[in-house]
Simulated scan of single mutants.
Amino acid sequence: MSEKANLRNLVMDQLEKLSKEDYDARSYELAKQLFQTPEWQAASCVGVTLSRFPEVNTRFILAEAKKTGKTIAIPETIYPSHTMQFRVYEKGDQLIEKKFGLMEPAPTAQLVEAAQIDLLIVPGVAYTEEGHRIGFGGGFYDRYLAAYEGKTVALLFHEQSRHFFPNEKHDVPVQKLLVN
C-alpha cells in the first residue's frame, strides 16, 4: 500500500471516531470561520460538495450561502475520465446517488463554468501547512484544480493536518486552510 493510501486510512480512522456532537460542533465552527473570510464575503458563486461523514459537514455552508443569496455549485463526477464539472444546486433539487454514496446533481441542472465559481471549497483527507492535500483517491479535484483560477479554501479538523507528506508534480495546493 502506498504512503498516501496509508495516511488516508490513518486519518479516516481518526475522523470516524469523532462523536456526532463533536463533529457537528467543529463543522459549525469551521463554517463560522469561513464566513468571516474576505474570500467568502466577496464570492457570489461558491463551489462545495454535499458532504458525508466524516468530511467536514457542509450543511451550514449551504444554508448560509442560500441565506446570503450566493449561488451554490456542486460537483458532478464524470466516468471513466475521472473529471468533474459543477452544476447549480438549490435545496430540494433532484440528486443522484453516484459511486461511494455521493449525492450529485442531476444532469439537467444548470452547468456552472469554472470561471463563474468565485470560491471553491476543496475537500480532502489530509493537508500540509502549505495546502497540499491527499484527497479521497479518485483524482477528481486534482484534475479540476489544474485549470481552475479562482480562490480555494479547505476546511479541516486538526486531525487532518500534517507537517509533511510527499506530493506529486500535478498536485495543486489549496490557497487557504481553516482548521478546528
Rank of each mutant, 00 (worst) to 15 (best):
I61W: 06
Y28G: 04
A126K: 00
I117M: 13
L7C: 01
D22I: 14
K70A: 06
H158R: 15
E159S: 07
V122Q: 02
A63L: 09
A114G: 03
K17I: 05
A73Y: 08
R8E: 02
M1P: 03
M12H: 13
S81G: 08
A42V: 06
D118F: 02
S44R: 15
T71I: 14
L10M: 11
Y79S: 14
W40Q: 07
S19G: 13
E76Q: 13
V179H: 11
E90F: 10
P54T: 11
V125I: 12
S44V: 15
F60Y: 15
A115Q: 12
E104P: 01
A106M: 10
R26T: 01
I134A: 02
S161E: 14
H158V: 13
K98R: 12
A146N: 14
S81I: 10
I74E: 01
L111W: 03
Q14H: 11
Q94E: 15
E21V: 13
S81M: 05
D118C: 03
K4W: 00
V56S: 06
L120Y: 04
L18E: 03
T108R: 12
I96P: 11
H82N: 14
R8S: 00
T108C: 02
L62G: 02
V112C: 09
T37Y: 10
I61P: 08
V88P: 00
A109Q: 15
S2Y: 00
Y148K: 00
E90W: 09
H158Q: 13
A126V: 00
H163R: 12
T128N: 03
F60K: 06
D171T: 06
E16H: 10
H158S: 15
L145H: 07
M84L: 08
T77Q: 07
R133W: 01
E39N: 04
R143L: 04
A154E: 01
D142V: 10
I121W: 07
F60A: 08
R26C: 04
E97P: 09
F53S: 06
K67Q: 03
S27G: 10
R87A: 00
R59G: 01
T152N: 02
S19P: 11
E129P: 04
D118M: 07
H132G: 01
T71D: 04
G139Q: 03
E159N: 13
A146R: 09
G139A: 07
F164Q: 08
E90V: 14
L34Q: 13
D22L: 12
Y144N: 04
G124S: 06
E129C: 06
V48Q: 00
H132Y: 14
F136Q: 11
F60P: 06
H170V: 11
